[in-house]
Computed example of a mutant assay.
Amino acid sequence: MTTKTLLGDVPRLYQNVRPFLSTLPWNDVRNADTCAWLIAGCLESRICSIPAWVSGRISKAQFAQSQEIQGHRFLKNPKVDPFEIYAPLVFQALRHWGEHRLVLALDTSMLFGKFGLIRSPKPLGMSHAL
């Protein structure tokens, strides 16, 4: 059985994503590795689910639950500054976007509780020039 059939494309995606993350200001290189695995798993699974994201990860962890806990810890790590990490990635990805329309969806569920909802009457444009 090949790696591709067993794990999908997650290891290949990880190998392509990891170099981009190396240039960012990480407080610990292990956070860059975890972030790269989560991104690769998200791209492969195409759903918003940490268990799905870590299912293709190559790890020394004995149980899948250990990988899920590591993913949750990374996402809630106060030492990982989202603006410092994600903003350069977003700006790099959108640098050559041009005049194409961009729709950005933000998950506000953590801000307003379980039943909070924010609606915009019209699509919001980008306020910065990339």
Rank of each mutant, 00 (worst) to 15 (best):
M1K: 15
T2L: 10
K4N: 10
K4S: 12
G8I: 06
D9S: 15
V10T: 15
R12E: 12
N16H: 15
F20L: 14
V29G: 08
A36T: 09
A36S: 15
W37N: 06
G41W: 00
C42G: 13
C42N: 11
E44Y: 07
E44Q: 15
S45P: 03
C48K: 10
I50V: 14
P51V: 03
A52F: 02
S55H: 07
R57M: 13
I58P: 02
S59C: 07
S59M: 05
A61Q: 09
S66V: 09
Q67I: 03
E68A: 03
G71R: 01
F74S: 02
V80S: 02
V80F: 01
V80W: 00
P82R: 08
P82S: 06
P82T: 04
F83N: 10
Y86K: 00
A87F: 07
P88E: 00
L89D: 00
A93F: 13
R95H: 11
R95F: 07
H96K: 14
W97M: 12
G98K: 15
E99W: 05
V103T: 14
A105T: 13
L106D: 06
D107W: 08
S109K: 11
S109M: 05
S109L: 06
F112Q: 01
F112I: 01
G113T: 02
G113S: 06
G116I: 02
G116Q: 05
R119N: 09
R119V: 09
P121W: 00
K122P: 01
K122N: 00
K122H: 02
P123W: 00
S127H: 04
H128N: 07
